[in-house]
Structure formats: structure tokens, C-alpha cells
Design a binder for these strands. Structure first.
Lengths: 347, 347
DNA sequence: TTGTAAGCGTTATCAG
DNA sequence: CTGATAACGCTTACAA
């Protein structure tokens, strides 16, 4: 590679380095480094010279080199079941926004509720010497657990909250969500209440919700009634559940709790088509409060997870662990958040 | 820092390095490097020894160091207006999935349709020596343009397609989308057709859609009728547009094209509440085909952008530019994609 | 307040 | 097929 000055370089990106800036500014390169990291420790005179050199050369600090030298880069990895689902995007967004404001960058990967994929993602992230890691839920493969434990960096588990975990947790109790839904329906007088599980079997958190439901049912002397759809898509699965539970001749469900709003929404559409009056004939409760949920007919009563808050607080907790002083003043907030039951027409 | 073997190290992460592996395996470190990069060039005997050393030490290659040494890391940055919106998530997801399958990692930042934020994100990304960069739309600040031009790496502009751009483009013509909607409604016999702009004024692509609409209207000797909501939220804006355009006593709109499905959906809800029969009294066309759109009453006729394909093809184009051999066989696909008009009940 | 020297953990280069 | 050596661009440690 031939450079502008005519010399040859064997390697290098061709971009201006901190040394180039230092040379132009007539200072040592470490002073340029300080100019960026701790401007206060550099005299105003030098600062000015460095400033102009930086803009003359259009210098962009090489964060890779910086990360290597300091052994802790400003990258934070996040593994999330999926990006495009309506649930997690808000968490990613707020997580990323808070981190970006503090000069950290988000490295993202999705697991699709697969422990193997999660493990692969965590392993790769670790190769980037991240400053911290965020994962979803408390359920990981054994290897992932070891990886996280030996990483020696802050780890946050989001979207869940369980006692006695060694990592920081920011989320809520899925079991409690299941209880909440069941209690709500029982309070309304329903007794024949069914629970429809997620068509994605490896969604462990959905199983926790189911368990909370079952617990409350038993407390009330009622038998839990679980339905596991066999259909592949949530859309088909919701319809299937509706046909099996609400459209039967005898002993139809008076109320159904769905593992998520996707299932509930397709159930409402199926019910509508079949002429079922909701909630009179069959009440419906979902989980997630997706954007569509308020627009259905009947609008969907559902439990709203604090998705945005989770991302925000998770980021703040990480920043604290990293010794940063977060800009936002919301530090008092707890890590265990509550879900709000949004009462609409369907139940 | 005191290490396990009792020696002291001044720096370092404490994790096993390639040298540790080499020592345990009894080979040179460069051979370990080759074991990972080009296994074929290492003899089976050494491969076996390295393999066991790697697992014994639980070695994870340090990608930061690798990126520095090779001057092109395996990171790819993407700037997208927002993560949590229903539109872009699918693009991010498929983009990330393809890249991950090829050993690249996605670094994500959102611009919120702000050129300043986009510029900041691009600048930071460049500091990570990314292998490539993806941005949204053809509209950038001047500085961003220079940054991208001088980056010397593949740059993809997504979600747009315009002639004579220097970067790779993967997307569709927003102007054509505007034309498509207008022609569809004109073909149905509507004449008093209005266009409702995005409440986010800096959404340049939405302005292109409007221009396409206006162009077709003029071709048909009709006067374009633009409405700019003043309300801050899309929900309010859609309602406001409906009141201004469809609920007026005289000269109400026969059909309305909305800049996106969020606006259209809230318009449908407002219309429903006001007792407007859609499409008889007023037809509605959206853009985006969000998940909710098929569930509205009436279900929303809208134009579906190929979000997932955009991410996928953008990733494939980048891999090609990088000299990788993409796993998927979809290389024949064009970069200029079509949007499908999804005909439902509202128009 | 500023500078010098020595890494950080990997890969490109060149030599065997 | 294997290895020694010198970068990559920055920051830590120490010195002035």
C-alpha cells in the first residue's frame, strides 16, 4: 500500500492514527489519548492544537485498538429470543439508547428461544471482550452458565426475576403473571378457565406463567386445564385452541388465558368468525400487550410487561456496575418490576 | 494481578490466549491461528493436539485483537431509524441472521430519522473498523456522506432505491409506492383522494411516497390534496386526519392514503367510532402492512414493503463485496424490490 | 501537565 | 506444513 507521503506500509487501514494527530499537533500521542479520555488533564493550549489536528485529519479513534489496549472495550452484547417479535423490540431500543448515550455500543444476537443458539452467541460475544452482557430469562444451557459465570464482567438477566440468581436481574416474575391472570378471571366469576401454551415449546418463561395459573386454580379447588396447540404458527395455534376449547358442544371454556397476545389475537379473530360473543360466551386474556391488541374487536384484555423499562433499567444497572455515572435519575427503581393488567373488552 | 501460576501480570484480561493454547499444544501460536482460520493447512496430528488444548483451556479467540491485527474486524454496523417500530425489526432480524451465519456480528444503532444521530452512529461505527456498514434510505447529512465515501468499505443503503447512487442499494422506490397507491384508488373510481403525511417530518422517504401520489394525481388532471397532521403521536395524528378529511360536511375525501399503517389504523378506529362506513364512505390505504393491519375492522388495505428480504439481500450483497461465498442460493435476486399491494377490506 | 516505553492478543510477512 | 518476528493503534505504568 502506497501512502500519501510516498512511503510504503505493509499493513494498516490507511486511516489517520493517534500518532498522526500527535505529530500534526506537535504533542505526544498519549496526550491525544488523554484529550479524548480525560480532557481536563490536558492544558487548554494543547487541547486547541489537538482539536484542529483532529479535524484536519478527520481522525476517528480506533476503538478496536483501544479495546485491546485497555482489555475492556465499550461493547455490550445482548442476546434476545428475537428482534422482530413485538415484545422484545422495545427492550432492545431502550437498552441501546441508554448505552449509546454513555458511549457504549450494542452488539446484538438472537437465540430464537434456543439454548444452543444462545450459547453460541454468548461465546462469540465473549470474543469481543465486551464490557458487559445481557441475556434473556434465567434459563440457559449449562455451558452458557459457566461462560457467564467465568466471564468476569457484569451480566444481566432480563425479562425474568427469580430468587437466588447470581447475576443482576431486571424483569418480573412470570409465575406471578400467570397467577395475576387467573386471579383476575376468578374474581370475575369464571370457573372453567383454560390456559393455552405457546406453540414454541422452548419458551420456558411461558411455562412459568402456566404454572402460576395452575397454582391459583388449585388453590381455589379447581383443576387446571392446559391446552397445547400442535399447529406450527401462532396464528393457526390460536384458532386451533379456540376450536378445541370454546367451540365444543359440552363443557366449553368460560375463559381462556393465552401464553401471548399473538395466540389471543388469532383466537379472537377465529371466535369472531364463529360468532362467539366475547367475553359473554368466552373471555380472553393475553400476555404482551402488542400494538394490535387494543385494536381488536373485542379489544384484548392482556398483561403488559414493562418492556421499555426493562431495557432502560438493565442498561442503568450495567453502567453502575461499570462504575459509570448514569445520566438519568431513575436509579431508585427496583429490579423487580410489575406487570400491569390492562382491562379491555375481551375479559 | 496474580495469576494461577503465581506469576504477576500487569495487564491482560486473565483469559487464555492463543499463546497459552500454543504452549499447551506444543506448537507455535501462528499454527493455532491457522487452526481456526484455515484448518486445512494444519496437519491432522497438530489439529488434534490444538483441539484438546483449546477445550482444556476453554479458549475463546479474542476477536478484538484479531480485528486489530487484520485491520478488518468481523463487525458490521447498521443504522436504522428505530428498532422498536413494526417496520424495521424484520429487516434487522434477517440482516443479523444472515451475517451471524457467516461469522459476522451486528452492531446496531438507531437514528430516529435524525441525520445528526445517524452521523454520530456512523462515526462511532467507523471506530470499530467494521467490515461493512448498512444505513437506511438515501438521505444523509453531508458529513455522513463523506464519512461513508471515504470509509473504503462496502456500504449498503437499505429501504430505498434511487438511480445514480454510489453505494449498493437494496430496497424499493418510495415514489413508486406512492404512485401505486394512487393508481389503485383511481382504478377503483375514487377521485377525491387525499394523502396524509407522517407526523415525523424528517421521514424523507414518506415524502417520496407523497410525491409519487401527487405525480399520478396530476397526470389524471386531479389536484393533489395533502394533509399534514400537527398532532405529536401517530395515534392522534390519524384521528386528526380522519376528522379533517372524512368527517367534514362538504367535500369530504372519498379515499385517503396514509404515510404508514400506524396512521391508517388509528384513522380506522376513529372512523369506526364516528360511524363512517369504510370503504363505502371513505376508503383507506396504508403503508407497511404491520401485524395489526389484517386484524382491524375493516381490515386495512396496504402496501407491504419487503422488509425481511431487504435485510437478507443487503447482507448477501455485503458478503459478496467482502469476498465471502454466501450460503444461500438467492444471489440472482435484484436489489430493486417490489412492494405488494395487499388488498383487504378498507379500500 | 506531558512524555517514554512496554505491552494488549492477534495476524501478515517472510523464512524454513 | 510450521514457525519467528514484526506490526495493528491504542492505553497502562512509570518517569520527568
Amino acid at each position: 500500500m502506497t501512502q500519501e507521503n510516498g512511503t510504503r506500509k505493509r499493513r494498516g487501514s490507511g486511516r489517520a492514527t493517534i500518532h498522526d494527530v500527535a505529530k500534526v499537533a506537535g504533542v505526544g500521542s498519549i496526550t491525544v489519548s488523554r484529550y479524548f479520555k480525560q480532557p481536563d488533564t490536558v492544558s487548554e493550549a494543547l487541547r486547541e492544537r489537538i482539536r484542529s489536528a483532529v479535524s484536519a485529519l478527520n481522525y476517528v479513534p480506533n476503538l478496536v485498538a483501544g479495546g485491546l489496549a485497555s482489555t475492556h472495550g465499550r461493547i455490550i452484547g445482548m442476546v434476545i429470543p428475537n428482534i422482530s417479535g413485538p415484545i422484545f423490540a422495545n427492550t432492545i431500543q431502550s437498552f441501546s439508547d441508554v448505552l449509546t448515550a454513555h458511549g457504549y455500543q450494542l452488539l446484538l444476537a438472537s437465540s430464537y428461544f434456543s439454548e444452543a443458539q444462545e450459547e453460541r452467541a454468548v461465546r462469540t460475544f465473549l470474543g469481543w471482550s465486551p464490557a458487559a452482557l445481557a441475556v434473556t430469562s434465567q434459563y440457559h444451557s449449562k455451558a452458557t452458565g459457566q461462560l457467564l459465570a467465568s466471564a468476569n464482567i457484569p451480566v444481566v438477566e432480563t425479562w425474568d426475576y427469580a430468587p437466588r440468581r447470581k447475576h443482576i436481574q431486571v424483569g418480573f416474575s412470570h409465575t406471578e403473571v400467570g397467577r395475576q391472570a387467573a386471579r383476575y378471571l376468578l374474581g370475575k366469576g369464571y370457573r372453567r378457565i383454560a390456559f393455552v401454551q405457546n406453540s414454541v415449546a422452548s419458551d420456558e418463561s411461558a411455562i412459568d406463567r402456566r404454572d402460576g395459573y395452575a397454582e391459583v386454580m388449585r388453590e381455589h379447588g379447581l383443576k387446571p386445564w392446559m391446552f397445547i396447540p400442535t399447529a406450527a404458527t401462532p396464528f393457526e395455534a390460536g384458532k386451533q385452541a379456540m376450536e378445541a376449547l370454546a367451540l365444543r358442544q359440552r363443557g366449553a371454556a368460560e375463559a381462556i388465558i393465552f401464553a401471548n397476545d399473538n395466540l389471543a389475537a388469532s383466537a379472537i379473530l377465529a371466535g369472531q368468525r364463529a360468532g362467539i360473543r366475547m367475553p359473554e360466551q368466552c373471555a380472553i386474556v393475553g400476555f404482551g400487550d402488542y400494538a394490535m391488541s387494543s385494536m381488536l374487536l373485542p379489544s384484548l384484555t392482556t398483561i403488559r410487561p414493562p418492556a421499555k423499562e426493562i431495557g432502560e433499567i438493565a442498561a442503568l444497572r450495567i453502567l453502575e456496575s461499570l462504575g459509570e455515572t448514569p445520566l438519568s435519575g431513575r436509579l431508585q427503581r427496583l429490579n423487580l418490576l410489575a406487570c400491569e393488567l390492562v382491562e379491555r373488552e375481551s375479559a
